[in-house]
């Protein structure tokens, strides 16, 4: 079986600086795959390239059987690849409900959209309670919920989450990670970028460790979680 997402020798540069230096990995349907690594490892650059916001200088990206490395961002969403960006990037002056509706911008099925908005409110009840409120008034954790709910509104085949736990309180972080577990259980395919390696690896099927633009180590989530070098570098153990 061919993978849902195949990345082959991907290189991305900002001017003369190469941020991603030829990485390859795949995501199978139904899997949770995580990219971990420190700041500046190239994780966010990788996701922004996959969703079309950046153009690779080299390499291939095949999503659902179709090469997408030259497709503009707004058309990649239509193929079923959703991206919840780092820093959440909700639309602050629109209401929560308007944000969710924008997640379904390309869909025409009003009934299905209404049902999925309800599903987002079931997943995150706080969003339902504040549906008419400007999204900018939400707390960081609530904004993260909204960003994830919004990305799900496009009914993606693959959901990319960039640093969903960034800047959140431990309780809120647990809630977000719990939600990812639930999404995984319901069959959603997820590509997760995280600095919180412990949390990410414990729920991922596959993990890749990135360092300054390269993948330096790959394995199952469990293997990486028990790998000595990973434990030293990313899990804060001596």
């Amino acid at each position: 079986m061919t993978a849902l997402l195949e990345v082959e020798d991907l290189r991305v540069s900002y001017g003369k600086i190469e941020a991603v230096k030829g990485i390859s990995f795949t995501v199978e349907a139904g899997q949770v795959v995580t990219l971990i690594g420190t700041n500046g490892a190239g994780k966010t650059t990788t996701l922004r390239t996959l969703s079309g916001l950046l153009r690779p200088t080299h390499g291939r990206v095949v999503f659902d059987g179709q090469p997408i490395e030259k497709v503009p961002a707004h058309k990649i969403v239509a193929l079923g690849l959703a991206h919840s960006p780092e820093g959440r990037h909700i639309f602050p002056r629109l209401t929560i409900e308007e944000n969710l509706k924008l997640g379904a911008y390309l869909r025409k099925d009003a009934d299905g959209i209404a049902k999925d908005i309800q599903r987002a409110y079931d997943l995150f009840p706080i969003l339902g309670e504040r549906r008419k409120q400007a999204a900018g008034t939400l707390s960081g954790g609530e904004q993260q919920m909204l960003a994830m709910g919004r990305a799900l509104m496009s009914q993606p085949k693959l959901l990319m989450l960039d640093e969903p736990s960034m800047g959140l309180s431990p309780i809120m972080m647990q809630k977000i990670m719990q939600t990812i577990v639930e999404l995984k259980a319901s069959g959603t395919t997820i590509l997760l970028v995280e600095q919180n390696a412990q949390a990410a690896l414990s729920l991922a099927d596959q993990g890749h460790v990135m360092e300054i633009g390269n993948i330096v180590l790959s394995g199952t989530g469990r293997d990486l979680l028990h790998d000595e070098s990973v434990r030293k570098a990313y899990l804060g153990e001596d």
Partner: peptide, 8 residues
């Protein structure tokens, strides 16, 4: 940027 991610 995020608008593009919505398919706009």
């Amino acid at each position: 940027d995020t608008a593009q991610l919505m398919g706009i």
